[in-house]
Design a protein around this nucleic acid. Structure first.
Lengths: 333, 333
DNA sequence: CTGAAAGCGCTTACAG
DNA sequence: CTGAAAGCGCTTACAG
């Protein structure tokens, strides 16, 4: 490596490492270091192209300027957008993002959590599988700020930033109802996640219960085999003569569309489509798909702000309970 | 934090830190540490739930078990897939991925490079803006293994893993020609990237030159405003009565489709579409789009294998020149 | 205004 | 078979 260290700067400038360190960290004035001395140190550092070893600094200060991000799948457009916005926000405060995908595997999540802790990330952002409540609480107790997003643990004091899933589905149901649709199918995931439960509750209460409608229009499918099962579910609903279908996630919508196309069912003529979760292609392929937009940018910004605040103020147990409103984007479907 | 350190393990077990360290790193046998002693140390470590401070270890060893990934945009499905596969591969060797997006901004790329170096990532993978050749070479000279992917610097000895862009376009042209298409338009980016140049050369040589065809069917648009300009380009080509259009990237294809739809031009009936770069939705919305698949998984696996090899063998200047073949996926467009 | 020294928690030659 | 000690490159109370 042969990197120049603080020591050579100090030697070269004829000062102590202490002085050099202070000056280069902008604490020169604070410590009333001679202006001339400061100048000398800075010049030499510049000339030698000195770059402090962040690793050493982190180790010494116990601060890595690093934030861990755990998501179900970084290749999912929703999570990769969030990662993008997070990175942009955090970069402004010189934090770097470390990323890991769980694929909904609790064990993988645990491993990532441990790895991040071992590396002393200053904070952890996590869209959890929701199977590791105690582990996450443990992390928090260990002194690392943790902020849940997208999915939270209802019976826990863990801070979170989520979207109002229940309300989101209500918006979708209301919209379809207003369009005169009465037989509204629902394709969702058989996953034990709060966000998912909330969406399904939204459908049951705002559709089945409120309007006293059929409850056998609901199909919950397996996450691990969703492409195929989604197709089956859609075909079943079609044979039940639904006039509209709500899809619980953007990728279910995508596969639902594929199924409809294969069956030569036209939307919105024969069946309306509404997607919980938007996707860039929904306004590219005609007919454009009506969708509920999850505010990825907003979520990322809230998360960045909150986690930085928790880190700065060392208020690990800060009570953060943010529920963002999703927004309906009415298109043609 | 109040974490248990090596020291407390050593104290508790009545051995030195040296011994404890060796045992816990699996070097007990190698150093012929008493089996009983080993057992004792391990038991105590387990009981106290000891987790070595990776930061301290990294600092001491000069190895962070971290790899930096620099891409133009992590929200791009192509790069996020690569990130996913990379993470999976690297996790097997206990490496973690740190991610940064450049948005094609050379300055941002430089900043990321410096930040990664300062943090002592063990290696750097980069799909470069191709405006920082000397900086990247500098990194390499500094002793950090660097591996370019997706985009490489033609006149440099920097190792790379790329796709054969020239050949890819040739495949597309040949395919369209075989379909009887003669007036083939091309919508590309006005970016100074080798990969881009190669694609355009592929079009010029295999279409314009080889068949002695028109050269004014080519449109190069601005990256910063591609959505709008792509639409204009497509409309122009349509008015020039092309019978097919090749799009240089998957997102150009997407926006091209949008433009066609707006103009009520039907594909493939009125104009055929071929995309350099596949996208999951190309086989979801009918008509399905014929595309050239960039082997994201393969690229990621090659990159992971090579960079780990460079790290392990400390052969920074290893000559890696891998050119993968893209694959045509014929669909309906 | 500036410096000597301890400390962050590991690893690793070296010695016996 | 095991340990004392140095070292990785910083920061920071403390002293003067």
């Amino acid at each position: 490596m042969s990197k120049v260290s603080l020591n050579v700067i100090a030697l070269e400038a004829g000062v102590s490492k202490t002085t050099a360190s202070m000056v280069l960290n902008g604490k020169g004035d604070q410590h009333k270091i001679n202006a001339a001395t400061q100048e000398r140190v800075k010049t030499i550092a510049q000339k030698l192209n000195y770059r402090p070893n962040q690793l050493a600094r982190s180790f010494s200060q116990g601060k890595t300027m690093t934030i861990g991000l755990i998501v179900p799948n970084i290749a999912d457009s929703y999570y990769s957008s969030i990662a993008l916005y997070l990175e942009q926000k955090l970069a402004k405060s010189s934090y770097q993002l470390i990323i890991g995908s769980t694929h909904e595997d609790p064990q993988k999540e645990k491993d990532l959590l441990l790895s991040f802790i071992d590396r002393r990330t200053d904070g952890i952002l996590i869209a959890s599988t929701q199977k590791n409540k105690t582990d996450i609480e443990q992390v928090q107790k260990g002194g690392t700020p943790v902020l849940l997003f997208d999915r939270h643990y209802p019976n826990s004091s863990l801070p979170y930033v989520i979207v109002d899933n229940y309300h989101g589905i209500k918006i979708l149901v209301d919209h379809l109802f207003k369009q005169g649709k009465r037989a509204i199918g629902y394709v969702g995931l058989d996953l034990d996640l709060d966000a998912i439960h909330e969406r399904q509750r939204g459908y049951r209460e705002n559709y089945c219960d409120r309007f006293n409608m059929q409850t056998d229009y609901i199909r919950l499918i397996n996450y691990d085999n969703y492409a195929q099962e989604c197709s089956i579910a859609v075909k079943e609903l079609i044979s039940q003569r639904v006039s509209a279908i709500i899809f619980e996630t953007h990728y279910l919508t995508l596969h639902g569309i594929k199924a409809l196309t294969e069956e030569h069912v036209r939307y919105p003529e024969q069946v309306c489509i509404a997607s919980y979760g938007d996707h860039e292609v929904f306004s590219i392929f005609s007919p454009y798909i009506t969708a509920l937009e999850q505010p990825a940018r907003l979520i990322a910004e809230e998360c960045a702000a909150k986690i930085l605040d928790m880190i700065d103020t060392k208020s690990i147990h800060q009570s953060v309970e943010i529920k963002l409103k999703p927004q309906l984007i009415i298109r043609n479907s």
